Amino acid sequence: MTDSRPVLVVTSLHDPTADVVIRELHDRDIPVVRFDSGDFPASLSVEAEITQEGIRGRLDTASRSADLAHVRSLYYRRPTGFAFPHLDEQDARFATTQARYGLGGVLASLKCRYVNHPHFIGDAEFKPSGLAAAVEAGFQVPPTIITSNPDAARGFIKRHGSVIYKPLWNPVYRVDDVSSVVEIAEVTADDIDSRVAGTAHLFQQRVEKTADIRVTVIGPHTFSVRIDSDLLDWRTDYSRLRYTPVPTPAQIELSLHEYLNHFGLHFGAFDFALDAGGQWWFLECNPSGQWYWLETETGLPMCGALADLLERKP
């Protein structure tokens, strides 16, 4: 008998990574209902009843419908935010919170596999939490300080020498009408002034690296790729990168899964710095990180592994 339970894919309209996963699921005859939570309520509606057996009801898009009691899995990617431009500011704020806690709460309460659960994604996106979990999992983590105290920042830099600044979160800025973000940069004690007191900042000892490692964990599968470049942050210029699949050391493999288990995640995109002695230094884990470009560069079967996870193969 054909299993008609759908996979829900929650993402924006323009998401090439979701596109390739959906094509793979379609090739396997797995039903898919794709939607952007930002489409609610204009072209997305929900009807959910809380019962002793769990949530039942339906979710309808312009072209698809899903029985909420029989969802196979939910792939939470990068949906846009709720928006109510036809309402005044106060009513829009109220409608947004109701949508978030109503529709969002329903989507977070289904009896299905989440890749990843939106609440757990939120937990894992806090950099201090991720770094603390990485230490617990057994990773080597560069000395790090989060501070709003200029003197503490200067003291940290003097103790550790080569230090970089990283934003704790990276909202988009508009510079000359062009989208921009705050980049990772090396800092000295002389760079620190009273502006540090204005908010929280993260400073971290710079790893003298020979290469970067991106590790994509999809369920039980681990895909490690060495990234060679001369860049402090390889994400600033993809044209200068060279990719080589590499084996994952056994202890790193154990720590990867311990880290994901800590946050209840099935997927994670991990970044490491590789030093001259072969040590892998944990930098961060993105629970919603991009990965498909690495499959096109290396041939590693990541899309198939993710489709297996969503299909709920053993």
Rank of each mutant, 00 (worst) to 15 (best):
L254S: 12
E258V: 06
R240G: 08
D237W: 03
D233C: 07
Q251G: 03
D230S: 14
H257W: 02
Y259D: 05
P247S: 11
D230P: 04
L241E: 12
L232Q: 13
S255A: 15
T248H: 01
L254R: 14
P247A: 09
L256Q: 02
D233L: 07
W234N: 11
R235H: 10
A250P: 01
T248P: 01
D233Q: 07
S239Q: 14
Y243C: 10
Y259G: 03
S255W: 02
D237V: 01
V246Q: 02
T244E: 12
S255K: 03
L231Q: 15
L231F: 09
P245N: 08
R235G: 04
A250D: 14
A250W: 00
S229R: 09
T236A: 11
P249N: 01
L254Q: 12
D237A: 09
D233P: 06
V246L: 02
E253A: 12
S229K: 08
R242G: 08
D228N: 14
P249E: 00
A250S: 13
L241I: 10
R240T: 14
T236E: 14
L231D: 11
R240L: 15
L231H: 10
Y259A: 06
Y238H: 13
Y259Q: 04
L231P: 09
Y238E: 09
L254C: 07
A250F: 01
Y243A: 10
I252C: 05
L256G: 04
Y243P: 07
Y238K: 07
T244Y: 02
D237S: 06
L241F: 05
P249W: 00
S239V: 05
E253D: 14
V246Y: 01
D228T: 15
Y259M: 11
I252D: 01
L254N: 07
W234R: 10
H257Q: 06
D230H: 13
T244V: 07
D230C: 10
P247L: 06
Y238L: 12
T236F: 05
D230Q: 14
R242Q: 13
V246H: 00
L231N: 08
I252N: 00
R242W: 03
Y243T: 08
L232D: 13
D237C: 02
H257L: 02
P245H: 08
P247N: 04
L256H: 02
D233S: 09
T236N: 08
S239Y: 10
A250Y: 00
T248M: 00
Y238M: 13
S255I: 06
Y243G: 07
A250N: 07
R240F: 10
L254I: 10
Q251C: 01
L256P: 02
Y259K: 05
Y238F: 15
Y243D: 09
P249Q: 00
L241V: 06
Y259S: 04
